[in-house]
Nucleic acid binder design. Structure first.
Lengths: 109, 109
DNA sequence: CTAATCTACAACCATATGGTTGTAGATGAG
DNA sequence: CTCATCTACAACCATATGGTTGTAGATTAG
């Protein structure tokens, strides 16, 4: 699977999106996060792993805890991908405008 | 599953992202699309269905063909969600700046 | 030192996903 | 009318996903 797949897949779950919001706001240990959701520690741990695989968060040790931080750069990478779509669409609108302009020219010829 | 999940999930596959690019650029029938990918018609049909469920494309009949169009609005909805993340992060940076400012004040007291 | 906490990881399970083939219904071409 | 094309949909299969429980290793607290 490619990185883009990992990014979108990671964001396609509301628990994971919520975790991203939390760790963008500030640091949280894995157990901090686990306490917030109605699921087991292991389940949250897996969600964090999915986010980590997509580079949306990083984990580093502090004592016996693992601290999770959000990586805004990854979010911006997704943003850029969407910009590409926007550009494609704008280009189409542009070409559509050209066709209309040509039609106008034809009328005045 | 909520709409956001559907949106991100739909975009978490390179074939589907490619289809979105194509139909943002211009109309294509389902069989047009199917010819482009190394998989069965039914498989492409399913991919289109996933995109449709997420409102990233619409389908309408023309003769015996089903014409697929991209919906830029859905792309923009995703964009807005990412903006929320960006805002959260900026807010954190802002608050971090405040803490530094308070520390400075403390020094000069 | 001992006990509690935090984490990692494996095994397991139900369901979802992404692909296939096959069948059948509309529609257009000749 | 007849045949080819386009589509829908069902059945099926292998694998991925999201959850669980259980076990074991680090690390801190007392």
């Amino acid at each position: 699977m490619q990185r883009t797949d990992l990014l979108f897949h990671a964001l396609a779950d509301s628990t994971r999106r919520d975790i991203v919001r939390l760790v963008l706001r500030g640091e949280h240990s894995v157990s901090d996060l686990a306490r917030r959701y109605p699921m087991s520690f292991a389940a949250v741990q897996k969600h964090v792993a999915v986010l980590e695989r997509a580079d949306l968060v990083t984990k580093h040790q502090r004592g016996r805890e693992r601290i999770v931080r959000g990586r805004i750069d990854a979010v911006r990478d997704v943003d850029r991908l969407l910009d590409e779509f926007e550009a494609i669409w704008r280009d189409r609108m542009h070409r559509f405008g050209d066709v209309l302009a040509e039609a106008d020219q034809g009328e005045n010829r």
